[in-house]
Design a protein around this nucleic acid. Structure first.
Lengths: 94, 94
DNA sequence: CCTCAATTTCGAAATATATCTAAATAGATA
DNA sequence: TATCTATTTAGATATATTTCGAAATTGAGG
């Protein structure tokens, strides 16, 4: 929990690649690793654990596999956070 | 430039404090440092340089001071980036 | 031109992060 | 139950980040 944790999780390029993969579809850890040929399976697992702690993804076990999927609600929190810096000044409320 | 750089810049709590301060008003480096009593002026300067490189803030020199202010357009890019993970699936376009 | 104040830059140290290989775990199925 | 496969955990290491105090820089004003 915590927006710092979420942002740190999302600021890593490899983890953003994982998030982008999961945008399309639910994938197992192994399928995700197959899309990241520069990383070992252990490293992919490490990144998934970071994303999971930040609740950016959920895991679901099926047979021998662990499937990961996005948790969209956390992205809404990020959107909300950043929108505060854009809101135009309100002249009614000086 | 680059969204990684921007996100890394914004993922640090001290730097987010600085951004929040600047939401209200343009401030000099010294004024910002005064709001962050746990950090040395040198450290604040370091954080400002990170925010500047990420173009999250602009600097403007006046007399002996360097004033900093937010650059809202970069926050719009962040918003755009995160919104891709929220967009609902489009049934017209399978 | 000298000095003061504001800020940055430098060099060093502590902490955190990303990565690997090897070992451990969990579950499926022969 | 023995073993195979998918995945995670552990331990180690290299790199990156945050921080400090001290020194350098910049500009203002006497």
């Amino acid at each position: 929990m915590g927006i710092s944790e979420t942002m740190k999780a999302v600021s890593d390029p490899q983890r953003r690649t994982i998030l982008t993969l999961l945008k399309g579809s639910r994938l197992s850890a192994g399928e995700i690793a197959a899309h990241l040929p520069d990383l070992s399976a252990a490293t992919v697992s490490y990144h998934l654990s970071i994303l999971k702690k930040a609740t950016l993804v959920r895991e679901e076990r099926y047979k021998n596999y662990i499937y990961y999927e996005l948790n969209a609600s956390v992205f809404e929190q990020l959107l909300l956070y950043f929108s505060q810096f854009i809101e135009e000044p309100n002249e009614e409320n000086p």
